[in-house]
Nucleic acid binder design. Structure first.
Lengths: 335, 335
DNA sequence: GTGAAAGCGCTAACAC
DNA sequence: GTGTTAGCGCTTTCAC
């Protein structure tokens, strides 16, 4: 079996002490330029890589980060995770991915497991039903760095990154208005979610911008955030049963968009007159029937930014007290 | 910051030595039943978890496994990874995921990086263009456990898990025949891939089963395995330009299926008379237009089985010489 | 049946 | 500017 070179090996080969080698490799200020050069060159030549276990043991760090998402096999999240991995990998961090399937219970269990596994930090996009954030607050207070992405919460003060959901919803709703729709229904995700409210706000903003009155009767929430098909189908049926039938529907999430299209197909609905717009990061959304106007988020980039924030938090030598919330813009596609 | 309990802590609290505690926790035969009980109970009560870094340092293991796939944000692979994670997580392993984008070069770079990062083992689904497996053979010979899933190779003798691609292709082609198609074209993935040849075999088998002659002119390969849209579009155009136009197309991969549907849409082709069937694990394939008959693989399960095999390899105390190849069945869906 | 001690690879006081 | 030493948490010989 291949045995990787250690600092000791290098030290022995170069007639130096291990500590000198260690310092040289990490560019310690006490080491002479010449020694550094020799050491670095030799380390290169034997393909030296620091042993993460030894480092972790010493520094009390695991060099692993926990990722908690509702669903891994969902376009948006798999794209975000691809972004996360691309940075984490490069910086020498492992990941542990866990899915909640939008269940609050699994979410808190998973988060606690991850914390016990001594991850160095946590990237999380909240489940749709969660309203009690104690389990996170406690861990965060105890020193576990957390960064929220996409589905963020106000209750914990830390780095966050999300999309400009309001403007995304504004653009999509506006596009529907531009197609002469006036009775635009909203099929929203769970009201606990940050993204739901931001998208609702964008929807309302567009209506008022175009002097269209807002009507509660045209809004339905899907509390399971699209993970429960039946809920979406029922909401859709209710909307269409309105005495004054909507002429367009704006859908507030990726999976609800899919469910809704499936419901239209399953119910054999004639949506000839009804225009549909929605958030979606599916790579085949342009091929779906009926076709929809869609808002796409910069998922990959969001993942990258989220880890970068987390690593800043983890690797900072001083406690950070100033937190930033990054908001990424969205793109509207009209087929 | 929360400080986890160590073996030392337990030893001190119970007036025992660390070694006794260690042995008791791992059910060492030398320890009296009573001591074991006390130790285990106390460890429970303080929520003791062994420190993976210390363990890894001692045992020269990283408790992490590398995953190499062509594309993370692809339905099949994200489902497989969900399966991998579900097992790995439970068994206390981290993962490092890397994508090749079907490039042989990135594949060998990534694999070598992972090996340098001292992963304990590797799960890999080969890139479409790879024909030289030296970089894998070498690592495997050096003791790195490897398990292949989905896109497997014959050249390395180890555990493998894949789908019954031949029977899947047989079923799909048969379904097309059942719809009165006789000139069935094949849009295949890269010929280097195991899955391509198995699916080709199933296609041929179905033809001969129904006494339909096989014709090379109805077969096109996509060497980029669907990651290059243009290649698929060109292949499709060629097939349709055949003097004797095909009345059906069977598509040998998920991403090529998507590309093909997109091409039909982009080219504004009238596919009224042409039936389409293909492999796909997309969760929205049933909503695509034109609709297709599709074969679905048990991706999640394949991921689970693959890690289980890998962990068996990693954790075995004796070198394993008998390797198994598991073949999972597929399901055919006719819309 | 239990304890003492060494060592995995690395870093950080503390010498010199 | 470089070396010595101790220790992170755990396992494992070797004593007793």
């Amino acid at each position: 079996m291949y045995k990787p070179a250690t600092i000791k090996d290098i030290a022995a080969a170069l007639n130096l002490s291990p500590s000198t080698v260690s310092r040289a490799l990490r560019d310690g200020y006490e080491i002479s330029a010449e020694t550094k050069k020799t050491v670095v060159a030799y380390a290169q030549s034997v393909n030296y890589k620091s042993n993460p276990n030894a480092l972790g043991l010493k520094n009390k760090r695991s060099y692993s980060i926990g990722i908690v998402v509702p669903e891994l096999a969902n376009s948006f999240f798999s794209q975000a995770i691809a972004g996360i991995e691309s940075v984490a990998y490069e910086k020498g961090y492992h990941t542990i991915i866990s899915q909640t399937h939008d269940s609050t219970e699994r979410e808190s269990i998973n988060v606690n497991h991850l914390a016990n596994r001594s991850v160095d930090g946590l990237l999380i996009s909240m489940s749709s039903g969660t309203t009690d954030y104690d389990f996170l607050t406690r861990l965060n207070k105890n020193g576990l760095p957390i960064v929220f992405f996409d589905r963020i919460i106000d209750e914990i003060d830390t780095f966050k990154v999300t999309s400009d959901n309001q403007s995304g919803a504004f653009k999509a709703t506006g596009a529907l208005v531009g197609m002469d729709c006036r009775r635009i229904a909203l099929l929203a995700s769970a009201p606990q979610l940050s993204i739901t409210n931001e998208r609702l706000a964008g929807y309302k903003e567009a209506l008022s911008h175009h002097h269209i009155p807002f009507s509660e009767s045209l809004v339905r929430y899907c509390y399971k955030g699209g993970s429960d098909y039946q809920e979406v189908e029922d909401a859709l049926k209710e909307l269409l049963a309105n005495t004054d039938k909507p002429d367009a529907i704006f859908i507030g999430s990726d999976s609800i968009s899919i469910c809704c299209i499936r419901a239209i197909k399953n119910l054999g609905l004639d949506t000839g007159g009804i225009k549909i717009a929605g958030f979606s990061n599916s790579d085949v959304v342009d091929l779906l029937q009926p076709s929809i106007i869609y808002v796409r988020q910069r998922a990959f980039e969001m993942g990258k930014i989220a880890v970068e924030m987390l690593l800043k938090l983890i690797e900072s030598r001083y406690p950070i007290t100033e937190f930033e919330t990054r908001v990424l813009d969205t793109e509207l596609y009209c087929p």
